[in-house]
Protein backbone atom coordinates (compact mmCIF):
# COMPACT_ATOMS: atom_id res chain seq x y z
CA UNK A 1 0.00 0.00 0.00
CA UNK A 2 1.14 3.43 -0.84
CA UNK A 3 1.95 5.80 1.96
CA UNK A 4 0.11 9.12 2.15
CA UNK A 5 1.67 12.17 0.54
CA UNK A 6 3.20 15.03 2.43
CA UNK A 7 1.37 18.18 1.42
CA UNK A 8 2.05 21.78 2.38
CA UNK A 9 -0.41 24.40 1.18
CA UNK A 10 0.44 27.90 2.32
CA UNK A 11 -1.44 31.08 1.48
CA UNK A 12 0.76 33.90 0.12
CA UNK A 13 -1.44 36.93 -0.54
CA UNK A 14 -4.30 35.38 -2.52
CA UNK A 15 -2.16 32.66 -4.05
CA UNK A 16 -1.99 29.19 -2.56
CA UNK A 17 1.54 27.82 -2.76
CA UNK A 18 1.33 24.02 -2.85
CA UNK A 19 4.24 21.64 -2.32
CA UNK A 20 3.74 17.88 -2.43
CA UNK A 21 6.08 14.99 -1.71
CA UNK A 22 4.94 11.55 -2.83
CA UNK A 23 6.32 8.16 -1.94
CA UNK A 24 6.93 6.15 -5.07
CA UNK A 25 9.83 4.16 -6.55
CA UNK A 26 9.33 5.58 -10.08
CA UNK A 27 11.09 2.69 -11.83
CA UNK A 28 11.98 3.50 -15.42
CA UNK A 29 11.94 -0.07 -16.69
CA UNK A 30 15.56 0.35 -17.82
CA UNK A 31 17.38 -0.23 -14.56
CA UNK A 32 18.84 -3.66 -13.88
CA UNK A 33 18.84 -5.27 -10.49
CA UNK A 34 22.57 -5.54 -9.69
CA UNK A 35 22.12 -8.91 -7.92
CA UNK A 36 19.92 -10.80 -10.37
CA UNK A 37 20.88 -8.86 -13.53
CA UNK A 38 17.17 -8.76 -14.39
CA UNK A 39 15.54 -5.61 -15.66
CA UNK A 40 13.34 -4.04 -13.02
CA UNK A 41 9.87 -3.56 -14.57
CA UNK A 42 8.63 -0.02 -15.07
CA UNK A 43 6.54 1.24 -12.17
CA UNK A 44 5.74 4.92 -12.16
CA UNK A 45 2.99 7.44 -11.47
CA UNK A 46 1.07 8.26 -14.65
CA UNK A 47 -1.58 10.72 -13.56
CA UNK A 48 -1.82 13.27 -10.77
CA UNK A 49 -4.86 15.43 -10.11
CA UNK A 50 -5.41 18.22 -7.61
CA UNK A 51 -8.67 19.85 -6.60
CA UNK A 52 -9.19 22.93 -4.43
CA UNK A 53 -12.60 22.94 -2.76
CA UNK A 54 -13.76 20.32 -5.24
CA UNK A 55 -12.71 22.24 -8.37
CA UNK A 56 -9.93 20.71 -10.43
CA UNK A 57 -6.87 22.97 -10.59
CA UNK A 58 -4.23 20.62 -11.93
CA UNK A 59 -4.20 17.42 -13.98
CA UNK A 60 -0.73 16.10 -14.68
CA UNK A 61 0.51 13.22 -16.80
CA UNK A 62 3.94 11.88 -15.97
CA UNK A 63 6.43 9.56 -17.57
CA UNK A 64 9.09 7.44 -15.92
CA UNK A 65 11.45 10.43 -16.19
CA UNK A 66 10.04 12.01 -13.03
CA UNK A 67 12.41 11.38 -10.11
CA UNK A 68 11.93 8.80 -7.39
CA UNK A 69 9.72 10.01 -4.52
CA UNK A 70 8.39 12.82 -6.70
CA UNK A 71 8.18 16.43 -5.67
CA UNK A 72 5.48 18.63 -7.16
CA UNK A 73 5.03 22.36 -6.68
CA UNK A 74 2.28 24.54 -8.10
CA UNK A 75 0.36 27.73 -7.32
CA UNK A 76 -3.35 28.51 -7.38
CA UNK A 77 -4.75 32.03 -7.41
CA UNK A 78 -7.91 32.89 -5.52
CA UNK A 79 -7.62 30.59 -2.54
CA UNK A 80 -8.15 31.33 1.13
CA UNK A 81 -7.17 29.83 4.45
CA UNK A 82 -9.20 26.73 5.31
CA UNK A 83 -9.74 25.69 1.68
CA UNK A 84 -9.63 21.95 1.15
CA UNK A 85 -6.98 20.59 -1.17
CA UNK A 86 -7.19 17.01 -2.41
CA UNK A 87 -4.37 15.39 -4.38
CA UNK A 88 -4.57 11.96 -6.02
CA UNK A 89 -2.20 9.91 -8.11
CA UNK A 90 -2.48 6.65 -10.03
CA UNK A 91 0.41 4.56 -11.35
CA UNK A 92 0.85 2.14 -14.25
CA UNK A 93 0.15 -0.86 -11.99
CA UNK A 94 -3.23 0.48 -10.88
CA UNK A 95 -2.02 1.60 -7.46
CA UNK A 96 -3.67 4.79 -6.21
CA UNK A 97 -3.33 7.29 -3.40
CA UNK A 98 -5.41 10.24 -2.31
CA UNK A 99 -4.38 12.70 0.39
CA UNK A 100 -6.20 15.75 1.72
CA UNK A 101 -4.79 18.93 3.19
CA UNK A 102 -6.11 22.26 4.40
CA UNK A 103 -4.74 25.59 3.17
CA UNK A 104 -3.02 27.42 6.02
CA UNK A 105 -2.95 31.20 6.22
Amino acid sequence: MAEPMKIRAQLQGDVVDVKVLMNHPMETGQRKDPQTNQTVPAHFIQTVTATLNGRQVLAAQWSQAVSKNPFLGFKVKGGKAGDKLVISWADNKGDKNTTEATVSG
Partner: peptide, 13 residues
Amino acid sequence: SNGAEGYVHVRLK
Protein backbone atom coordinates in the same frame (compact mmCIF):
# COMPACT_ATOMS: atom_id res chain seq x y z
CA SER B 1 -7.42 25.20 -14.65
CA ASN B 2 -9.62 27.15 -12.22
CA GLY B 3 -7.04 29.72 -11.14
CA ALA B 4 -3.91 27.58 -11.23
CA GLU B 5 -1.00 29.85 -12.17
CA GLY B 6 1.40 29.15 -15.04
CA TYR B 7 3.91 27.60 -12.70
CA VAL B 8 5.07 24.06 -11.99
CA HIS B 9 8.05 22.67 -10.12
CA VAL B 10 9.15 19.04 -10.51
CA ARG B 11 12.28 16.93 -10.28
CA LEU B 12 13.27 14.91 -13.33
CA LYS B 13 15.66 12.15 -14.24
